[in-house]
Design a protein around this nucleic acid. Sequence first.
DNA 1: AAGAGAACCAACCGCCCTAAG
DNA 2: ACTTAGGGCGGTTGGTTCTCT
Length: 249
Amino acid sequence: MVRAPCCEKMGVKRGPWTPEEDKILINYISHYGHGNWRALPKQAGLLRCGKSCRLRWANYLRPDIKRGNFSKEEEETIIKLHELLGNRWSAIAARLPGRTDNEIKNMWHTHLKKRVLKENHQATTLETKPQNYVKPEPLDYPIPVRPQSPQHSSSTTATSETTAITSTNNGALDNFPNLDENFWENVFSADDSGETRNFLVGGRETQMELQFSPLHGAEQVCGYNPVMHDCMDFGYNIFTTAGELPEFF
DNA sequence: AAGAGAACCAACCGCCCTAAG
DNA sequence: ACTTAGGGCGGTTGGTTCTCT
């Protein structure tokens, strides 16, 4: 069965929004909220489809949107997060208050992508390498694979997987923290959107935000430190939101 | 000053996921 | 269990503005 389009094309206006339409949408949402997007245009008196209204609101009219040029810090954050998360624009936008996924996506395609490509090219071109350039050694430890969540696996238990993955890391990385036994269970009960939780790490209660991200072909727990504007580069990366990194970093 | 090409960005499209019936 | 609608997301398009010659 083919899904019907989100709106009848006939009689629905398309293209750039006029200031009058913006005003109507803002007034309506500020009085009644958006509720059902599909029903909104009719109730508000707009000749637009609901999807168009939602996009206009989300990307342009929302009061918390920050307009204007991106700061250097924001650009660096986008580059780091893109390295970490790939094209998950909404996840990246979630870490840049006031910026929309569309805006970030445009920024990436028009400015940052070229810049990153150029920088990568320079870094790998022999002529541009400094004389004391040393080729980085490949990782000497296995990239740990995220064990299946207990809710997705019926054949193994969380406990055995937890033990295995923890011992793998402790054996491979001297400075990998001692995780409390409920760590992975706690991780798996969080979603992928960067939920903040308290964990016992290295024997210390630490507030952390976790993300799962596919890197090097394997899914990893990894993170980004918004305070230091730096990606943690372990097999498992963990970062705090409290502004201070745990000692093991 | 004018035309061409490049860059920018708002908006649209179509797919996917999820909740409700 | 299945179907369907609603909403979210990433990719793409096309109109506008800018820059260069």
